[in-house]
Design a protein around this nucleic acid. Structure first.
Length: 494
RNA sequence: GUCCCCAUCGUCUAGUCAGGUCCAGGACACCGGCCUUUCACGCCGGCAACACCGGUUCAAAUCCGGUUGGGGACGCCA
């Protein structure tokens, strides 16, 4: 068995979206699994829509996801000569011909056929022009495209799909498709095959939306005298209305970049994406890289399209709930130093980072992340719901403020009083702060919960959080005392 | 209209190739309970699906046929 070589060939016409990321991921996994190579090739032959910003975005997205490649990025546009030579060869060997039908004519015919609910295949007008007829048209300066000449014969062309099984299509059902534009630029169908041959691609893993391309491309491989690679068509990812997910209709929610901005852990996103249309055959759903590579196989890719369960404007879930759940799982189970590294990056962009956190305060920093991470869903939560641990400009959630603080005006006395007790404590630790708090509640003949819940809200801005006395220790005496003394500011507005 | 693919809980899916161990298993979400000064985590429990109709068989989610439904493709886009 020769070397496995797979490729990811994005067209740089937008950002990397999760469908593309999923394709890249599966190719990457197969390469890793087999010890093969992943080739990255930018398919930029549509010069009008290709942008360099898009190329950067795709490369950034892949890097962020941790999907590395072994060769490339190659640029399809730099192999234009190969593509043209292949087209020329196809004409010379009788596998292709020039077609002088105008775009307008063809469009008119196609529209008419569609309207009449007829088949819309090319009618073969130029298929059998004589040498003289061709010469005459060329002399007259009529622009021509090059079409592939599909053999007129009974039978089928087919391939053995590693996911779907044997796929066949009758020659009769395949029209003479265009492989070179009238401006001389070869089209995707041809370029893609020529590049895959040159790059010695052994397995083509791509979406089911390419299935009709594949049968035509098999014809090209054969005409070009090249071995046909193994194909594996993966199911598509659809939205709740069962439409293909796309930037145009779904916006940022399908962009890898969006998940990066919202505080996703890169591998968590990969883990979620691989489960859309693949499973290991047992009940596992969480995989380390190594585990996933070990478990992966093309045969376990499903045949059924899956739905990306995202509801626009859902107040509770900003994306597919399962994606969030997987991310949250990683957030609370990854080694805390890994979380620390991710939080550091985010804090740096938020102006919350202090170099101390990598130095003398490192232990405190990591312990605090450990304390609060259990109820967070994304890395961004550390700077939002967790802000009070790292800065003084944290927001107070109005709901708990009303419920836990403003409801008890006596807290204007109690909390500063408690602050003084804390200030006087020999040791500011869990045990002593708890004793002081409960002691005061007893003296006041109130439930300790009143003081505890009030403190949680005042000190963290939140309704809920870790055990309060852990919070006190994490914040440290200085901040706790200052925030409790300053209680009046909260009542100022009433 | 033509061609191709697909069809199990709301969603992701196991089971289908080698029919019985499946009155269908897991996960997410949802609902209830335990734990807890709060919330979350964790644990326990619940709700919830074999698209339909025929056929084959002692036996069908599983095999066969049809119907319906969904998706994809039908560009001088990739």
């Amino acid at each position: 068995m020769s070397e496995v070589r797979v490729r990811f060939p994005p067209s740089p016409t937008g950002y990397l979206h999760i469908g593309g990321a999923r394709t890249a991921l599966l190719n990457w996994l197969y390469a890793k699994k087999t010890g093969g190579k992943l080739i990255l090739r930018i398919e930029d032959t549509d010069e009008e829509r290709s942008t360099s910003a898009s190329i950067d975005g795709i490369l950034d997205g892949l890097s962020w996801l941790g999907l590395d490649w072994d060769e490339g990025p190659y640029f399809q546009s730099s192999f234009a000569d190969d593509h043209c030579r292949a087209a020329q060869k196809l004409i010379e060997t009788g596998h292709a011909y020039k077609c002088f039908c105008s775009k307008e004519e063809l469009e008119a015919k196609r529209d008419a056929a569609m309207a009449a609910k007829q088949d819309v295949k090319y009618d073969g007008t130029c298929r059998n022009l004589s040498g003289e007829e061709i010469a005459a048209r060329e002399k007259a300066g009529i622009p021509a495209v090059i079409r592939f000449k599909v053999e007129k014969k009974d039978g089928v062309v087919g391939y053995d799909d590693r996911v779907l099984g044997r796929i066949e299509r009758r020659y009769d059902d395949i029209e003479d498709f265009v492989i070179v534009r009238s401006n001389g630029k070869p089209l995707y169908l041809l370029c893609n095959v020529v590049d895959d041959i040159r790059d010695r691609i052994s397995h083509v893993i791509r979406g089911q939306d390419h299935m009709t391309n594949t049968t035509r491309q098999v014809l090209l491989y054969e005409a070009l005298g090249a071995p046909v690679p193994v194909f594996a068509h993966m199911p598509l990812t659809l939205d709740l209305q069962k439409r293909k997910i796309s930037k145009r209709s779904h916006g940022e929610i399908v962009a890898v970049q969006f998940y990066r901005e919202r505080g996703f852990i890169p591998w968590a996103l990969c883990n979620f994406l691989v489960l859309l249309g693949w499973n290991p055959g047992d009940d596992r759903e969480i995989f380390s890289r190594e585990e996933l590579i070990e478990a992966f196989s093309l045969e376990r890719i499903g045949k059924t399209n899956s739905i990306f369960n995202y509801r626009k404007d859902d107040p509770k879930f900003f994306t597919d709930p399962k994606a969030i759940a997987i991310n949250a799982h990683y957030l609370r189970t990854l080694p805390i130093v890994e979380i620390g590294a991710l939080v550091k990056k985010h804090f740096q962009t938020q102006g919350l980072w202090h170099d101390d956190y990598d130095g003398p305060r490192r232990e405190w920093f990591l312990a605090t992340l450990e304390l609060i991470r259990d109820r967070f869903h994304t890395i961004n939560d550390f700077a939002e719901a967790g802000r009070a641990y790292f800065a003084d400009d944290y927001a107070l959630d109005p709901q708990p403020l009303a419920k836990n603080v403003l409801k008890h005006p006596e807290l204007r006395e109690w909390l500063p009083g408690l602050a003084e007790r804390f200030a006087a404590l020999k040791l500011f630790d869990k045990e002593h702060t708890e004793t002081a708090t409960r002691g005061m509640a007893e003296e006041l003949a109130i439930k300790p919960g009143i003081l505890i819940n009030a403190m949680r809200t005042v000190l963290t801005g939140q309704l809920a959080g870790p055990g309060l006395f852990d919070v006190l220790v994490a914040l440290g005496r200085e901040k706790v005392v200052a925030r409790l003394r300053d209680i009046d500011r909260l009542f100022g507005g009433i």
